[in-house]
């Protein structure tokens, strides 16, 4: 681990000293020993503040959307999930590859539930790889949340989601962090359209939950950031996992963000799609 941290500091320092990049995004320490926060390194000496340990969990790719027209490329450390987030945002035409300097860091898995379903620990897109790739261990049940909910009765499922979303405070943190949720404007901020109000009510919360899931569903990269940031700790991946499970049932193996070229499921069609309508 320390070896790798030295390599990361070295790489960040080199990039900043050469002036190729405007700044580098990585992880920094917080006052809590078991938490890290995103770190923006602008000067070579800032590289000393970089940390890399089992708590370097937050996704850092979404911050690229805060600087869409940088003067110099932005350096980013990319694990597997960050690289998929970057693929997703490049495919969605939100960021450009030439604005990025990707420092690939094969991940060793963190102490987090979402890492048990990780399918790519090694970055899928990078400019340089800081150390050797290691194979990703066999992921656990990919749809663990959706499978548990599907086993309930219809009334049970409604009761389950009502209970979950009654707790939602509609802070929209899950939307803000999600790399697939990358629109410039979001329907939840446009209350005059009537899709959803501002009040805290069961119907509006449930509708927010379903709509958020449907808007990202086929583009979800299964990074689990939405659950990590939720201040109420809600199991909202249960909704997106259901959509991915259905897509995998309908068209076979489907995964979002593995490259920046393949189309998302709802953005294209096939003449031979399954026809369940009459």
């Amino acid at each position: 681990m320390n070896d790798n941290l030295a390599k990361m500091r070295e790489a960040a320092k080199r990039a900043l000293e050469s002036g190729d990049v405007g700044y580098v995004i990585g992880w920094g320490a917080t006052k809590f020993p078991d938490k890290t926060s995103p770190l923006f390194m602008r000067k070579p000496e800032d590289a000393e503040r970089l940390v890399w340990n089992e708590y370097a969990i937050p996704g850092i790719a979404k911050y690229l959307l805060d600087d869409l027209y940088p003067d110099k490329p932005i350096g980013v450390f990319v694990r597997g999930c960050d690289s998929r987030a970057i693929n997703r945002m490049m495919k969605d035409n939100r960021i450009k590859r030439e604005n990025l300097r990707l420092l690939g860091i094969p991940c060793d898995g963190k102490d987090d539930e979402r890492c048990t379903i990780c399918r790519n620990r090694n970055p899928l897109v990078y400019d340089e790889l800081l150390w050797d790739e290691a194979p990703t261990p066999e992921p656990k049940d990919r749809y663990f949340r959706a499978n548990a909910v599907e086993a309930m009765s219809a009334d049970g499922r409604y009761a389950y989601w009502s209970e979950v979303f009654d707790q939602c405070i509609r802070c929209y943190a899950c939307r803000n962090i999600c790399p697939a949720c990358n629109c410039k404007e979001c329907y939840v901020d446009m209350t005059a359209t009537g899709f959803q109000g501002k009040q805290h009510s069961r119907s509006d919360n449930l509708i927010f939950g379903v709509t958020r899931a449907f808007h990202v569903g086929d583009r979800c990269i299964e990074c689990g950031e939405c659950e990590r940031v939720c201040p109420m700790g809600l199991p909202i991946m249960g909704q997106t996992q259901k959509i991915l499970k259905d897509i995998n049932e309908l068209v076979g193996d489907y995964e979002s963000g593995v490259d920046a070229e393949s189309e998302n499921y709802l953005g294209v069609f096939d003449l031979d799609d399954k026809d369940e309508f009459m």
């Binding site: 599907e150 409604y158 909704q239 897509i247 369940e276």
Partner: peptide, 29 residues
């Protein structure tokens, strides 16, 4: 309508998953 087909095949399943009776939502040609 090919896009409709993909979209509402998923939506129908998602509504059912959220406890809405399948009899309340229909898509027809």
């Amino acid at each position: 309508n090919y896009f409709t087909r993909r979209r509402f095949t998923l939506m129908k399943r998602l509504l059912e998953y959220n406890g809405i009776d399948p009899g309340r939502f229909h898509a027809r040609w």
